[in-house]
């Protein structure tokens, strides 16, 4: 058997791939958080619950309406994104002039309510969601065997993250968004409808979370706690990458997934804490995060 530093390469690559997959979800979720935080200045604590809603939307679409995975990949983000827009218009929009702590309390409360409702209806044991048939055959990479669905998740996440980055950094819509992040009053004074921009941005961030939820459904089982489990790590990722930095959240998401995978090989006991240790180290050296701008 091949080894690398005394570790069987199969094990090493297996864990690194798992890390990359977790990283793909960290990246998608922290990207949505970064987009929302950038413009709304709200730390969206309901992000995990919305990710879970995305997975459930996929599950319900299949079980009740017979909509397959590909349909769910489009519909679930739209449905959950629309739910997010209603929340933003009816509740969050009232909080922008108040201390950010109110936004945090609202979104945290919403997360608890949403989770509770789903727990009530579906219990806490996971529900199965089969990967689409096209991904049945694993990929033979020579040095390892990679389940095709996992490869798809990594590619899909990368494409969505890069498309989002491109839209924000390189298009005129993105320029308007960046300008509104920097100085919303000035952007309004040019005749741009900033509240509508805020609403759509929140809807988009939520849709990203829901998309991650659908992608996750065949890997992790669909269950009401899935969001609460992952979101704490995602917040650490956002803090390490730098609040509000788009590219930072994507790179950090993937990199920390890999770190986690590597730790599972080298020192498994630390695998669930390694990200928080990195967070503390980064905050000591760069309080604004690796890619964050000074406040």
């Amino acid at each position: 058997m091949h080894t690398f530093l005394g570790i069987p390469t199969q094990v090493l690559f297996g864990q690194l791939t798992l890390g990359l997959i977790n990283g793909a979800f960290y990246a998608l979720l922290s990207l949505g958080l970064a987009v929302i935080f950038g413009l709304l200045n709200i730390v969206n604590f309901s992000h995990g619950a919305l990710y879970m809603m995305g997975a459930f939307a996929g599950y319900i679409l299949l079980q009740v309406f017979g909509v397959n995975y590909w349909g769910a990949l489009v519909l679930a983000p739209l449905i959950v994104g629309a739910f997010g827009i209603v929340i933003e218009r009816t509740m969050m929009a009232r909080l922008y002039r108040l201390d950010p702590i109110y936004g945090l309390l609202l979104t945290f409360g919403l997360a608890l309510i949403i989770q509770g409702l789903f727990r009530n209806s579906y219990g806490v044991s996971g529900l199965p969601y089969a990967a689409p048939p096209i991904f049945r055959a694993p990929l033979q990479l020579g040095f390892m065997v990679l389940p095709a669905y996992r490869a798809w998740v990594i590619v899909a996440s990368l494409v969505v993250c890069l498309a989002t980055w491109f839209t924000i950094e390189k298009t005129s819509l993105g320029a308007t968004l960046r300008a509104a992040t920097e100085n919303p009053v000035m952007v309004s004074a040019f005749g741009i409808n900033v509240p509508r921009l805020v609403t759509l941005t929140y809807g988009f961030g939520v849709a990203l979370a829901a998309l991650a939820g659908v992608l996750a459904a065949p890997i992790y089982s669909v269950n009401p706690n899935m969001g609460a489990d992952i979101i704490i790590v995602v917040f650490a990722v956002v803090v390490i990458g730098g609040m509000g930095s788009i590219l930072g959240s994507v790179i950090t998401g993937f990199a920390l997934g890999l770190c986690e995978g590597l730790t599972k090989v080298v020192y498994p006991q630390a695998s669930s804490t390694v990200i928080f240790v990195i967070m503390i180290a980064v905050l000591m050296v760069k309080p604004n995060g690796l890619f964050g701008r000074a406040a």
Partner: peptide, 27 residues
């Protein structure tokens, strides 16, 4: 609201100039 006033046809150049640091000159 401010955006409707701008759309009516008033252009504003504030004292602090309001140039956006995260945007290029063209943007």
């Amino acid at each position: 609201p401010s955006r409707a006033i701008a759309r009516a046809g008033i252009g504003y150049c504030p004292e602090e100039r309001g140039i956006f640091a995260s945007l290029s000159v063209e943007e």
